[in-house]
Amino acid sequence: MVDRNVASGLSQDDDVMNQAAAWCKAGKNVALATVISTWGSSPRPVGSHLAVDQDGKIVGSVSGGCIEGAVVTEAMEVMKTGNPKVLEYGVTNELAWEVGLACGGSIHVYVEKIE
């Protein structure tokens, strides 16, 4: 299995960045999650984005839907503290086993507040 760290699809995430900027402009707290590494069969490539606002609204994705819920919870925390975080999900991670990357890969996600 080859890492698919190809950025070719980034333009697809234009709407995530635009939405994140729009939320900020509307005075909302916003966090941005970015896939920074993948191993095995992860559904979304490195550079994929998910943005979350303070009300839990989301745009974009960092997986096929398996870990979005967990990432949103962490994003809420990052919005409060302002400190960025690197999250790891995968078959070797017990928490991840619970939230489940059904595809059997592992990914690292960087979560930061937009301020």
């Binding site: 234009d14 960045m17 900027a21 900020c24 941005l32 937009i114 301020e115």
Partner: peptide
Amino acid sequence: MKQHTLSQLIK
């Protein structure tokens, strides 16, 4: 990420 960094990326 700073808001101005995000705006610059979008621009």
